[in-house]
Design a binder for these strands. Sequence first.
DNA 1: CGCGGTATTGAGACGTATCAAAGGAAGTGG
DNA 2: CCACTTCCTTTGATACGTCTCAATACCGCG
Lengths: 249, 249
Amino acid sequence: MSLIIPHTGRRVPCEQCPLRPLETFRDFTAPEIKFVSHFKTGEMMAEPGAVIVSEGAHSAHLYTLLSGWAFRFKTLPDGRRQVLNYLLPGDLVGLQGSVIGEMDHSVEALSSVVLCVFQRDRLDELFGAHPGLGFDVTWLAAQEERMLDNHLLSLGRRTALERTAYLLSFLHERALALEMGKRVQIPINQQHVADTLGLSIVHTNKTLRKLTNMELIRWLGGACEVLDLDGLMDVAGWEGLSRRKRPLI
Amino acid sequence: MSLIIPHTGRRVPCEQCPLRPLETFRDFTAPEIKFVSHFKTGEMMAEPGAVIVSEGAHSAHLYTLLSGWAFRFKTLPDGRRQVLNYLLPGDLVGLQGSVIGEMDHSVEALSSVVLCVFQRDRLDELFGAHPGLGFDVTWLAAQEERMLDNHLLSLGRRTALERTAYLLSFLHERALALEMGKRVQIPINQQHVADTLGLSIVHTNKTLRKLTNMELIRWLGGACEVLDLDGLMDVAGWEGLSRRKRPLI
DNA sequence: CGCGGTATTGAGACGTATCAAAGGAAGTGG
DNA sequence: CCACTTCCTTTGATACGTCTCAATACCGCG
């Protein structure tokens, strides 16, 4: 179940990118879109479970997630796994590798996924020709940092119940920003939750049960639905994401 | 004990920055140094315990730590505190705020500290005039992200002993990269360690005692000395930092 | 029908938190 | 120079949250 299907053909021209019209993304100027379009060299698809980039790799590519869900993770030598963050459409994949030179974590698809492919070595070109886009890359990195700060706070100082509530409301909010109005389903299983929150799978199960009994969420086997976002955020003691518009590269 | 001493005078011209000659920092071209020098508007000093920037603030400044130690942290509404990362000379302070617009965490000085002050709103100028420096800012953000990934792995998947060993070897390595050869003293107390690792202070104390008995560290009341770096890294199951040269802005 | 991946549940063990108390070092004011 | 405070560290006892082990149930799929 570990399929990656590269194809050079481009189905989605940047000018008609389905993401760009969404509320969350800031408007780009015509030259900016043109540059991004020129920067993009192709698309890549992957099925759930496929490893998109792996730790230690020296990838020549940088991606933007066009559709689907994925997650970043690291593993300890003995196999213990930690999920670092989740990737949703519009997120850059592999920036660390592109900027620093070597990936320090792996990325795996949660659902079927389509990625826009960029040439890593043309990143300087982007900074040179479009300082605004360069700034945007930094913006995205800072935003990721901010999410990690929150996750760290969660792991370090929240109880199992609070953490779980935080994670699910976080993911729900992120998805909601993209699919306004639609019914959101988070495509994760309990092992993912456990590996994200630093909990055992058994205790994760018991904690999710509590949230289910409180009628805050619904578990669907391979996916999760948030029934009461405010309630969840309340349990977590979390304020929610900023509503600021973000760049899309 | 919460002193911040701003002064507009500049004692350290960038051309004679004491950090720049160090091994860890990459060479800058003359125009780059000139720009950074022009970008810098002054210096600021702070004493241990002083809050340099605080959560929610909308700061007009961006800093580089010139000397001393500091740390970033967040707090939950009920007061639980989580240390996110430590700041050492050469680190940018307040980048998130400058790029996104609002600080999401606070920064506090651990030791006496000197900061170079930059005008936040001239950051675009940097990206515009020196794409290479813009790239460097992104590089630094990516590097911070990488450290946070490692901390997350630690909190999520390492035991108390492993975590503590990781933290101290991490800080020791970072300091070592700056003060090659010198005897490194990490200016933290056990409360900081506890708040970094998500442990209670009592358990932190007992864990530090174990490391002390193993003769891996020495505790000095208000500071810590690493006696056996390899031993510590072994306990932590950690590979160490990359030896790559970094930019200094 | 049987199988692999996933979710569920109970029981006991272990790691870490909490509570409580005391010792040491540094600084302050009398 | 001594009492006194304050901050930091240390230690023991007990409580609690989470882990591990073990077993069962569930479900889609070949």
